[in-house]
Design a protein around this nucleic acid. Sequence first.
RNA 1: GCCCCCAUCGUCUAGCGGCCUAGGACAUCACCCUUUCAAGGUGACGGCACGGGUUCGAAUCCCGUUGGGGGUGCCA
Length: 463
Amino acid sequence: MTSSTPRFRFAPSPTGFFHVGGARTALFNWALARQLGGRFVLRIEDTDDARNRPEWTDGIIDALAWLGISSDDPVFEGPYFQSSGTDQHLDAAAKLHAAGHAYYCAMTPDEIAERAASEGGTGYGGWSRDLGLGPGPGRVLRFRVPDGTTVVDDLVRGRVNFDNAVIEDFVLLRGNGSPVFNLANVVDDVTMGITHVVRAEEHLPNTPKQQMLWTALGERPPVWGHVPVLVNEQRKKLSKRRDKVALEQYRSEGFLAEAMVNYLMTLGWSPGDDREILPWAEIESLFHLEDVNLSPAFFDVRKLAAFNGEYIRMMSADAFAEECCRWVPDEWSKDQLAAIAPHIQPRLVTFSDVPALVDFIFSEVVIDEESWNKVMAADYSLALLTATVDAYAALEDWSAEVLKSTLEQVMTTFDLKLGKAQAPVRVAVTGRTVGPPLFESLEVLGVDVSLGRMRAAIERASG
RNA sequence: GCCCCCAUCGUCUAGCGGCCUAGGACAUCACCCUUUCAAGGUGACGGCACGGGUUCGAAUCCCGUUGGGGGUGCCA
């Protein structure tokens, strides 16, 4: 690798569904890697921990691919698995120990808590620093935090100072000898030649520790960039337990990847003008960490939905119809679906809503009682329906245009406006008071089915 | 408790000392359009957390207060 090639990385741990916050972090790294002609390294941090499961790893890779981040692009590198780098982590630990940057400690958490309490402090006080202990069961390897101040230069937050005195001698190797996050993470970054670490702000407190590790390992620390976390309505960090954060769920509800990407990228960042809907290519060339906001941003599903609507309306008619097909039962007529598609495009929020919007075309009508009662309560409804059926039955041209003008003809004798006059027909044919434009629906439905339903309604109303 | 970060409409943001009577978008409301519902159009509502400075001039710079967030693990 050349030192002039920026190397970004995204390092999720497979502990659950892929999170929208993780998606945003990945996207930020991806945009930068591509913009700078660098690489995007995917590293799965699967080191021990009972929470890791292989299926989550597949979920991460699928989700990233959905967002457009995949090995189809030469910028993408990996995935690598942290678990396969254990030897290197251990080597680094040994090196640190040999150089005096780390020491073994035999104290248990309980003993530490006890001593801390008795001394009026909270954390570990470096009590085993000069015992000269060697490795052994139950002994952890701790980093010897030097005196002084650690200055973290962060592309999004500026310069942040940490007094080393408040950073306790953190653990590198557990009592069972396995490497801990801070060590594994840094060693992997070093090994993989990572030059830019862009991640969520929750890692900022880890950064001075990691920077000390880089230095102790004889390496120059990477460029840091800590972006604010995403929060829920209560302004708390998005959590897998409480909040709807699974990217896969949004995907299965029919959110478009493009809309999700655009939304995520403009959460905490803006192109600097009044636009917020903009193509990826433009986002990629305009995105800079220096422009990322410093405050946590609320992940607002309503705004995501609005973005999705925008993207749906931007689709070509063909692309839209094709996408609709993927969201309805196979047995539904693709021709009929394609015919009605242009009329649902402006009213669709997410694709999972497609079936419910047009099901009356493909299955038996289900009359909604409330709608029926409301519409048929009008004294003219039955008569109007009867007159309309008669007029429609005589039609030779079953087109939306003719259907409309015919009803307009009929309604004059009832002294109604079209808005009122179409209601009985609508409820008879679709079962509801709202739906796609009526005459276009009738056209797609065809003469036989339409008339059949209207006659059934007349019978129902008469009986 | 301690450490760190942050603070413009309800929400996402523009703003980097004078273009600010603070702009846009989502949401909400009203009107127009209309074949229901949407979409579209027009408009309304609504904000620089507070207090001190600095400056001829502050949303923009400094300090403090308050509020919020993150971290404080032999999790990642």
